[in-house]
């Protein structure tokens, strides 16, 4: 199984303003959420993983290979990133061209690329928009196009930077579905996200960034059990977790389903 190893990584955009201060992490096949306050350095972190930014100190290894030895384009075969802002990602005048751009660049044949692109579009619910101009579509659809254009590349790692931005309930459910599917296809999924309920439902592992450091890292339930540290990072646990905590339950519940199941079990006794 492939992994990404980050060793003692520092980064700053301008001198004297450190953004990341010595990150040590190994990312593996567990679905992983990255959470943290605005400006904590999450986007910067994933751009470093993509090679779009270069660490000022430290290294990143993809499957044991130092990524500074590869070009961004070479790395793109393995690691896909859905940008936080779809406007920064979309640049073609036709949806299908946009989605086929990646697959073709990483060496897929025209037919394969078209096939992948069509599938990706139907996964995100945009089948039939192939000939539209992405600039004429709304933010939520543009975000979905951005997602589709990464899915179509079929990379080993898929990174989402706030995929649920501007999405309604139905779209959020669709994104959950996509993440689960990627996981069962054996891909590494990494997601930056502010929606804690979403984190609790979808991710096995959670990493908390605060002021350029990793404050917490572990199984999602363990992370959300650390109330003090979360407050320190200006985060709050999922709503069910908070509710059960206030009700005095010792156990950390992550989803409504968990809690309902627990209550039913105890009532039966």
């Amino acid at each position: 199984m492939s992994n990404i190893e980050i060793k003692d990584m520092y980064f700053s955009y301008t001198e004297n303003e450190p953004v990341l201060n010595g990150i040590n992490l190994t990312l593996d096949s567990r679905t992983t959420a990255i959470i943290g306050q605005n400006g904590a350095g999450k986007t910067t972190f994933v751009k470093l993983l993509k090679g779009l930014l270069k660490p000022t100190h430290g290294q990143i290894f993809w499957d044991g290979k130092d990524i500074s030895q590869m070009t961004v384009a070479q790395l793109a075969k393995y690691i896909g990133l859905v940008f936080q802002n779809p406007n920064d990602q979309i640049f073609k005048g036709k949806v299908i061209d946009e989605v086929m751009f990646g697959p073709i660049n990483i060496g897929m044949s025209q037919e394969d690329a078209l096939d992948h692109a069509r599938k990706a579009l139907s996964i995100v619910g945009l089948a039939g928009t192939e000939d539209e101009n992405p600039y004429d579509m709304g933010l939520s659809d543009r975000k979905m196009i951005a997602i589709a254009s990464i899915l179509a590349m079929d990379t080993d790692v898929v990174i989402f930077d706030e995929p649920t931005i501007a999405q309604d309930y139905k779209a959020k459910e669709k994104i959950k579905q996509i993440i689960r599917q990627l996981k069962s296809d054996g891909k590494m999924v990494l997601t930056i996200i502010h929606d804690m309920d979403f984190v609790a439902e979808c991710f096995e592992r959670t990493i908390v960034f605060a002021k350029g450091n990793v404050l917490l890292d572990g199984p999602t339930a363990e992370v959300f059990a650390q109330k003090e540290k979360l407050t320190q990072a200006y985060l709050e646990p999922p709503h069910v977790t908070q509710l059960c905590n206030r009700l005095g339950y010792q156990q950390t519940f992550l989803t409504v389903e968990d809690f309902v199941a627990y209550v039913k079990r105890t009532l039966k006794k």
Partner: peptide, 11 residues
């Protein structure tokens, strides 16, 4: 950035 992060060689 959008292009190279999707595999187009620019470097």
């Amino acid at each position: 950035d959008a292009q190279r992060s999707r595999g187009m060689e620019t470097e």
